[in-house]
Structure formats: C-alpha cells, structure tokens
Design a protein around this nucleic acid. Sequence first.
RNA 1: GCGCCUGUAGCUCAGUAGGAUAGAGCAACUGCCUUCUAAGCAGUGGGUCAGGGGUUCGAAUCCCUUCAGGCGCGCCA
Length: 585
Amino acid sequence: MKQEVINVVRNAIESLQKQWGLETISDIEVEIPRNETLGDVAATVAMSLAKTLNKPPRKIAEDIVNAIKTMIIPPLANGGLGGVTAEEGEGRLGIFEKIEIAGPGFINFTFKKEYFYKNLEKLLEEEHSSFRTNIGQRRKVQVEFVSANPTGPLHIGHGRGSAVGNALSNLLQAAGFDVQREYYINDAGLQVKLLGQSVYAKYCEICMDKYPYSISKNAYPFPEDGYKGDYIYKLAEELEKKYQGKLWAKDFDEISREVIDFSYQKMLELITKDLKDFGIAFDRWQSEKELYEKGKVESSLKTLSDKNFLYEKDGAMWVASTRFGDDKDRVVVKKDGEYTYFASDIAYHKDKLDRGFDTIINIWGADHHGYIPRIKSVIEAFGLPKEKFKVILIQMVTLLRHGEPVQMSKRAGEFITLREVIDEVGADTAKFIFLTRRADSHLEFDIEVAKEQSAENPVFYVQYAFARISSIFRQAIEKRVQGFEGSRVQEIDLSFLKENEEISIVKKLLQYPIVFEGAVLSFEPHRITYYLQELARLFHSYYNKHRVISEDKTLTAARLCLCKAVQIVLEEGLKILGVSAPERM
RNA sequence: GCGCCUGUAGCUCAGUAGGAUAGAGCAACUGCCUUCUAAGCAGUGGGUCAGGGGUUCGAAUCCCUUCAGGCGCGCCA
C-alpha cells in the first residue's frame, strides 16, 4: 500500500526535478493517517522539501499532484504489487480514487475499492506465503535469551525475557532470517558450586534422619550465601535417591563433581521443562564449562594478548577495555589465578561471531546494561564489527498480587516462579501480557488481575475473533453454503464487500506487512500484539453489525472470503507471538 | 557522584524513525442475546503528554536543564 504511493510520488518528483533544480531526491516518506477519513496513505514530502526549495509546502504539493495527474500511472502488476492499471481505472488516477492536499501540505491518497478487492484476492490466493518477506535474505542471526543460571527455577523475569526472545526469533524467521535460538549455560564457576554445596548440606540432613544408626557422622554446614527454597530440598532428596548414603560425610571437594553436576543438570531439566510448557524451545545450548574444556577461553585471551589488549597489574590480568569506550579496564584473571566471568564471556562472544552469524542478539535483563560496553570493546579489540552485536534489554518485572508488590528475594528463596505463573494464569495469557509492552518499559504484572480478568484479557479478545471465524466456517460447512474454497477465490465477486466496515477490515489486513516490517526492523514484536488487537476489534464490530452467512449466496461467498483473510492474518500474528489460535473457546 | 532506562486518562500501557483533533484495555455509567460463540458490540465521561527552556513550517517524539522512580557502577556471577 505504501509502496505504490512512494513510486508515484517519486516519479512525479523526478519529472519536476529539473524544473525545481533539485539535485538529489531523498527517500519518500509516507504514513498511514491517523484519521481514516483523510485518506489511506499520506505523503509528507511537500513539507520536508519546503525548506530546500524555498517554496510554500502547499504549492509544492500542488505541483506534485498536478504532475501525477498528467502521468499515466504504470500498471502496478508490472511491479508485482497488484492493483489495477490506469486503463482499468477511470481517468488518469489509476488505482487512486482521489489525491488531495490537506493541512499544512499533506498529500493524501485514497485508493479505489477495486484496489482492495484485488489485494484481498491476492492474500487469499497466497495465504501465509504472502507474508514470507525476504527482508532477512537468509542472513544468519542468533538470538540468545533466558540463559538463566542453572541454580534455581526460572522466575517471572525470565518469563518475560523468554517470551520476547521467542517472539523476536519467530519474527525474524518469518522475515527471512536464518535464526538460531541459543541458551548459554553458566555451568562453571562459583554459582554452580554454591548450588552443589547447598544441596549437599540438605542431603546430609536427610541422611542423618534416614540413617540414624550412624549418628557419629556429621552434617555439612549450609553455606552462608547458599541457595534456599524448597527446590534445594527436592534436589537433595533426588540426590539421596540416586546415591543413598554413599556421598555422606565426605570431604566436599572429594565428591563435589558428582554433587554439582547432578544438581545443575537436574536444574536444567526443570528449566527445560518449564520452558517447554511455556512453549519455548532452543536450537542450541552452549555450556560455559565446555568453552574452558575446549580451550576457547585460553585461546581468546591469547588473541587479545597478541593484540596488546591484555596487561598485568596488581597480580591480576586486565583487559584494556577503556580503549574502546568502557568506563574502566576489567579483570579477566584474578590474583588467585581464577578466571572471572568476563573471561568466559569474551570467549563466548568471540565464539558466536566466529560461527559466522551476521548478527548476534543478546536478550538481557536491564540490570546487566553496565556489561554492554565491555563486551563491545572486546569485540572491537578482536577486530570484529561491533554492529553485529546487539543487546535488547528487558526491564524489570514488578510482580503484584491484588495490587500489592510481592517481595522477591532470591537469597531467601522467595520468588514467584515462571511455573507458578503458567499454572495460575496460563502460558498464552502470560506471553501476551509480556508482549504488550515495549522491552524497555517497566512491567507491572498483577498475577491476580491476570487471573481474575482472564475472561476480559486482551489475549482472549484476539483468540476469540479467531474462534468466532472458525465457528462461522463450521456453520458454513454444516449448511453447505457455497462459500470460500481456496482454489475458487477468483470466481467469487469480492466487490459485494461494499460496507464501510468491510473496506476498513481489508485496509487493516493490507497494513499487516507494514506493521510486520516495522516490527522486524526495530526488533519490536510488541507491535504485532497491538496490531492484532486492532484487527480483532474491527472484526468483532463487523460481526455484531453484519451477518456473514445469509440467503444472498454471492454476498455470503464474498464475506466468507473476508473472514478467511482475517483468520489467516490473525493466525500469522499469533504464531509470531507464540500464542495459540484456538478454533473453539 | 557517574552511567543506562522510565515519567502519557483514576490504574496498566500504546503512540508507527518529527506530522493533522494524543489512543486502547481495566475501572465507572447507559443500552444490545428467539438468527454465524455476549470471552462480544454500540455509546458517555475522563489529559498542563512530570516541570521549564530550545531546535522548525510542525515536538509526546530531537537537544539542554530541573524533579521523580527503577537499575547498574566488584579481582561476584
């Protein structure tokens, strides 16, 4: 819809270029007017040209419109854009019903109804494939998200990150990118050790109860900053089930490998299950430990060292990240010879870029924002293009229950898990709520409101539209209505769709690719969420006002086509959000 | 103190890379089910876009500044 206008305006300006003495023509910007009565597409060029041409914008707009009117608008079929040719249309406006100048210098284009019928037909012929754009051109993109430490269950914040990461991946995939979803497992270092110690302490307690005859054996002290919560106890129980008393009363270092590996692997199983029930799957799981074992940490530091970005100070090894804009240099090898977390992250990001991705997108909690400059600087130090590295920060989720904030303390083991959210409000609702906000806006999630209002929740509003259409088709089949069948769209006279509501819906449908493209380019899946609500609103309204199935066979056939198209777009959008499209509700 | 994010209707949030009269949901009120699902529809009320300056044909949007909230600023991960 936009493209047709851009083409026409560009041609018009080109014909005026010499007369105006204009050297270059910048990109033509058009927009969908807020108010539908103004037109379908508006061009703002006249106003932006006003300064360079030193002419009043309305005069420029007039010149452009006059130029358009003296042109034959080329048959748009040539451009593969559909529409009707100038010959088919009346007068010289081709696919346009009217072109008007309004306000300070807007040029408003209104399409002929035939244009909409033609495009509706095209949508129905191609169905979902009509949305398979190729913005991505098969470029390789990796989206890394969640990557929660395997030291505890996923909480609601991870839920938000996973919903966004998943939807973004779907979005990019639909746009023709080659997408890989990856989860980075922090299975090396202090945190998993602490998990192991916490579990071991509980395990020893269980053993003391279970094997009272060996009372001489001691308990293992619970680590000071150990992980708390029921799940630790459950892990300990499982540990006991597997090893019975065999690991009891040993020196922790002696049995640490078994305990630690068992604990975090069990944790990962739980995390995977939670994600699965949330409808999210990963293509690849990257272990931090493996980066060490394969020598990638060592080798990437060596590379930095060769490039002179590494230096020693106070007995530690530092990366000169300030050279590329970081606040301060960062330690990678501590005085005691241990690597910092940053060390493996350097290796990890280098590894990702080495794997040949055109873009790597990290979805991080906003509390990690201070981490971005150091990663960027390292990427530059490696001589890799830093534009390939993108971070989407997900702002904090404040969890409420009846309007009261729920205190979350990981240390005390008190937090609402993703599991609880899924069980209480359902995966679809939770995902939809997570995707109704911009990533960088704080989110208040009232679990009671989400539950109580479940009947009036926006997600149901959209799904309901889909279900209603499904119901109409069930009726149509039952009544043996001669209606829509994929192969016969061309035989149905869509021009029976004369109602304003019907035209509005078709316009909205044709806007989907525009919204979609915007969402892709800005990495903002939430735009799809809002679009779907608008489309559902139009449909519900239409449904209440007009009957689809009636005595009038030709009208019914045309209306069934419209319904089908709405259904296709709703399904397409919901699929990107990772939300189901139920045929019955 | 420095850095990042945010501030839009009573509440929760959108606002399409600067555009026309700033929008939705919830909450409140009034109507609509013998016909395709009322998880719906139609309508009413509700705003100093945090405050102040600036940039220009034009600002919720860009710049400066003040205020308020959140989050970072470890040889933790």
